[in-house]
Amino acid sequence: MAELHRGHLVFSCGASLYAVPAETAAEVVTLPLLTRVPGAPVHLVGVFAHRGEVLPVVDLARLAGKPLDEAFKRAVLVRGASGAVALTATRVLGVSQLEGKQDRLGDSGLSAHLRGPARGPAGEVAVIDPEGFFDFLARGGA
């Protein structure tokens, strides 16, 4: 797990602030029109082709059980060992150093793959653990 003092890309999804280590954040993109995938769970809102690769889009709000009405404009591409996923972002705040702890925020679900509580310039931030998060998604988000 990367150290907090190293740079993290901080973004919001709904009312929550999330962060990913800057080295795992491949790119910030403007989301194009998505292609829905048959039989996909609700947090996998679709896929889009980006630089010759099909990227799944994960809606963190839905995954956290707090779906939003608004359409997402931006997404943060996070790359792990098994590929990349696009995380929906309401607003991307930029790269910041964080302070605080790196403890697990929960035991099950999404929160089992979030670390904290950490603080950024914009407030309290949940830091996503990319590897565990990817495993979590590969298991069907359950």
């Binding site: 039989g39 996909a40 082709a49 010759g52 690769e53 590929g83 996923v85 998604l137 590969a138 298991r139």
Partner: peptide, 17 residues
């Protein structure tokens, strides 16, 4: 095009790409 890893389990693995 390949199926992303996080989606391989969808529709019982019937998604080819």
């Amino acid at each position: 095009m390949r199926v992303p890893e996080v989606m391989k389990w969808v529709v019982g693995g019937a998604l080819m790409g």
